[in-house]
Amino acid sequence: MYAFLSVASFLSVFPLYWTVVSATNSSSDIIKGSLLAGTHLFQNFYHLLELYNLSTALMNSTLNAVVLTVASVIICAMAGYGFEAFHSKAKDKLMSILLLSMMIPFAAVMIPLFQLTANMGLLNTTIGFILPSLSTAFLILLFRQSTRSFPYEMIDSARIDGLNEISIFFRIFMPTMKSTFAAATVITFMSAWNSYLWPSIVFRGDPSAFTMPMLIARTIAGNVTDHGVVMLAALIATIPTIIIFFFLQKYFVEGIAGSIK
């Protein structure tokens, strides 16, 4: 058992270790199969900055991911809360219809979505980027399921205190459901940061709107690849999600677990 787990752990971590190491090596050291950290980190970084617009891509990715995460978590949390705390037969029926949307592959809607975004003049904009994933049945379901365990007496007493429904949501529900919100934030941020297919459609025409995944995909596009630069770019694109993963691992696991109960 320990042998099996050790091998699995090694195989899981090794490619990442090698990425970190290679980001500090020169192209020729990488070809030689170096497994130790080298001294080329700054040269690689310098080349990366020289060849690609790293800071713009980092800023675009951050802006897009933050806006999408905040907007989509609030919209879906409200919906999940609405479905469960004001539960009714008709709402259940609507929910099961909305769940069908999880069966629709993105490839099946990307062309109409592209036309729709283009017609509204939203190509190459953050709004255009966030539209398709603003509201997802998965997040609504996550919030609906976890609202089941919400102490309803708190809502009732807040109503008696004269709070209106919106204030109850923001002032009572949100603070109580912190861990669900954290999980939803982690999941949404990660998928927004890493998304690639939709950005490469919606930001196609404007290099200044490129995101990190689009930038790192370009590092291999040329004829000559600088291996060190590729690995450093992949590493930089990965760092934010790895940090979030380490700090919020508990929520990440809980969040996924919460959604399957």
């Binding site: 990442l16 690995m231 590493l235 790895i242 993963f245």
Partner: peptide, 17 residues
């Protein structure tokens, strides 16, 4: 942690790796 770690890597990044 080791076994979950690959989930935190973006799809394009791991494809390049």
């Amino acid at each position: 942690t080791a076994i979950f770690l690959p989930c935190a890597v973006g799809l394009v990044a791991y494809a390049l790796i």
